[in-house]
Design a protein around this nucleic acid. Structure first.
Lengths: 219, 219
DNA sequence: GAATATTTTTAATCTTGATTAAATATAGGT
DNA sequence: ACCTATATTTAATCAAGATTAAAAATATTC
């Protein structure tokens, strides 16, 4: 069994490489995401890139990327995380701004059997409560193409695909305004100097700051 | 937050002191239950008995017992464990011989909020799938008085109160024979030399070895 | 392209929670 | 009461996963 420290490392490499469409991830990015020192990242990268079945490749001073085996592990952890998030929402009514933190711990401790039972109970869902795709057991990820809401030109009508799950504050705000995945939204105008967006959801107009629009992905 | 190592230590002190009706627990008993060396037990006992709010008392060469604070923590962990066991059985259909192992890991990682939601979903249950009482949030434990099935005299009719959850093998065996908590059972005879018991459950007679009867508690 | 700034790695160290082996205390039997 | 067996503690050590500070490599800027 791999330790939580290792699973988190691999998950971070995966998530950061997703964000930027490049598979090499810098030391600094990993240190930032994992909230560890840069030295800790180097240590872990060296450790995981050596041995019989390396989980990552590590080019010194250049970066880290997942090996096929490391990707498998990362997707398993992400699958756990997102299934747990959805399960907590659906089955136990945990507010969607709290499920991330809970899943962050539990993802390392559920068995494959329990994972399978949750997936069955939920009807083998494809997306978590924030709209992120749940990887399948054989490692497929159905990613919908989307762009950030802050780059949408006024006049367009779009559908919310996904909201970042890392900031509970933001999630509470989105929830209060009905900004869930699959919600239809039209961009009315962009404010002159602030980058704020005026949007219309379900007949109601509201103004969203850049801190919100940057973390909402739409299609 | 207390580490899993500490939580497990306190839980073991609690469980061993329950078993023997004495609150002092020996080093060897703890080493056996936690599957650690005796030295590891001494270290942990010393660590937890020092500091501002000690969780245990430790009398060198004599034993360890819980402080009121340590008892609170132990009961919290036991509550988590038993609620999780029941939740997995009831809500997700995990076989009762597998829930212990799963709960053993998850008990250290659920929030108080999630604990409360599980308790609500289950209707604030009093007993886990093996018949063990689930401590209340304020630390009360409803213990039913019971004795081991292997000390019951032939001719008696008794009710199963609890089965040990530590051996999946035994639990599977009990499940196959319908020997669940609350089941009524009559002891027909005791075999001459083996200590095996002939019992009748739901019209069917069966013979139970000492390895089973010793771990079944009845009233 | 040299000087400086930034990033990464190395080296030494820390903490937690374990181990084994040796020393010491307690308990039992005659 | 003494000798022995058993249990416990001490001491030294280990491994994992972190840290800080210094050294080294890479990037940036003029």
């Amino acid at each position: 069994m791999l330790s939580p420290a290792i699973e988190n490392f691999l998950k971070s490499v995966y998530e950061l490489s997703q964000g930027s469409e490049k598979d090499w991830v810098s030391n600094a990015e990993l240190a930032g995401m994992l909230k560890h020192s840069a030295a800790a990242i180097t240590n872990m990268a060296k450790k995981l890139s050596s041995g019989k079945h390396p989980l990552v490749e590590h080019k010194p001073y250049s970066g880290t990327r997942l090996s096929p085996g490391g990707r498998r592990v990362a997707l398993e952890v992400v699958r756990h995380h997102r299934l747990i998030e959805l399960y907590l929402c659906e089955a136990l009514g945990v507010p969607w701004d709290q499920v991330h933190e809970e899943a962050e711990r539990l993802e390392h401790h559920i068995s494959e059997d329990l994972e399978a039972r949750m997936a069955t109970a939920l009807g083998h869902p494809e997306f978590d409560p924030h709209g992120a795709p749940i990887p399948t057991m054989d490692g497929q990820v159905f990613r919908r193409n989307s762009r950030s809401l802050d780059e949408v030109e006024p006049g367009s009508t779009v559908e919310i695909v996904e909201g970042s799950d890392h900031d509970p504050e933001l999630l509470r705000y989105l929830g209060e305004h009905g900004l869930y995945p699959n919600t239809i939204l039209s961009v009315v105008a962009r404010e002159q100097f602030s980058n704020d967006l005026v949007v219309k959801v379900d007949q109601k107009e509201m103004r969203l700051g850049e801190n919100a629009t940057r973390y909402i992905r739409v299609a």
